[in-house]
Simulated assay, not measured.
Amino acid sequence: MIDLDETDRALIRALALDATQSAGALGRELGLSQPACWRRIKRLREAGVFRGLRLDLDREALGFGVTVFLGVKLATKGRVSLQDFERAVSAIPEVQTVEHVLGMYDYRLRVVARDISDFERVLRRRIMTLPGVGNLDANVLLSEERLPGPI
């Protein structure tokens, strides 16, 4: 774990809002020189605070109007079955996230589809045929009020 001061936290917040900002622009915003700002960014990256840059896509603009959270309970549990399931589900392009969770279900998936009939196709032909799948529970996303951001 890295020690963060207020300037580091402000830098993280600014980059979370717009990661395309230059070190010079960020430095001016935070009262730092461009080289000092660049060194802080480099230190944070090397410490693993930043795992990479990500493009935030508008799913609806790309034709994916439905998002479904799917709870998956595996029929059998063992190290091999978990790995087989994770490997297979990660290969499905419509599955945006795969979260191994504790509780009623073993996994929580975020699945996007063009519409409900497209989701049904993905569910029947891809997800329900995965190794070890037992029970499923689907929740359709109605609206998203807050997107993931900095802690």
Rank of each mutant, 00 (worst) to 15 (best):
L102N: 03
S33Y: 07
R126Q: 15
P93K: 04
L57S: 10
V49C: 09
R51P: 06
E145H: 12
L74Q: 07
T129Y: 05
L109W: 02
E145W: 14
A75M: 13
S143G: 05
M1Y: 09
V49E: 08
A138S: 12
S143D: 07
G31P: 02
A14E: 12
S90R: 12
T20R: 13
R9Q: 13
L53M: 15
D58M: 06
E144G: 13
I12P: 05
R28P: 01
H100F: 15
E60R: 14
G24D: 06
R59Y: 14
G71C: 00
R125I: 03
V98H: 00
L4H: 02
V89H: 04
Q83I: 08
D5R: 01
I2N: 01
L17N: 10
N139I: 10
E86S: 11
G103K: 06
E46P: 01
V49I: 15
I12C: 07
I116S: 10
N135E: 15
G149E: 07
E99V: 08
I127M: 04
G132E: 04
G52I: 10
Q83Y: 09
G78L: 11
D5T: 01
P93S: 00
V66A: 12
T67I: 10
E46Q: 11
P131H: 07
E60Q: 11
A25D: 12
D115Y: 05
G103C: 06
I2F: 11
L44D: 03
E46S: 11
F119W: 08
I151H: 07
A14M: 04
A14Y: 03
G103D: 02
G31W: 04
R146N: 03
S143K: 14
P150K: 04
L4I: 00
L62S: 10
F119N: 01
A75W: 11
E144A: 11
R28S: 07
V112N: 07
I127C: 08
E46V: 04
D106N: 08
R125D: 12
A14C: 00
G52T: 06
E99R: 10
Q34C: 01
R59K: 13
A61V: 12
L26A: 06
D115P: 03
A91R: 10
V133G: 03
A16V: 06
T76S: 12
A10T: 00
D137K: 13
L136Q: 03
L74G: 06
V112S: 07
L62I: 10
T76P: 00
F119V: 07
D84C: 06
G103L: 06
D118A: 14
Y107A: 01
Q21V: 02
L136I: 15
E144K: 14
E94F: 03
E145Y: 14
L82N: 11
L123H: 11
L57M: 14
D5Y: 04
E60N: 09
G31Q: 03
A47R: 05
L109Y: 03
S90I: 01
F119I: 05
A25F: 05
T76F: 13
R39P: 00
L44T: 06
L147Y: 11
D56T: 15
R124F: 08
D84Y: 01
L11G: 03
G52S: 05
D84I: 02
T67F: 02
D118C: 04
Y105N: 04
K42E: 12
E60M: 11
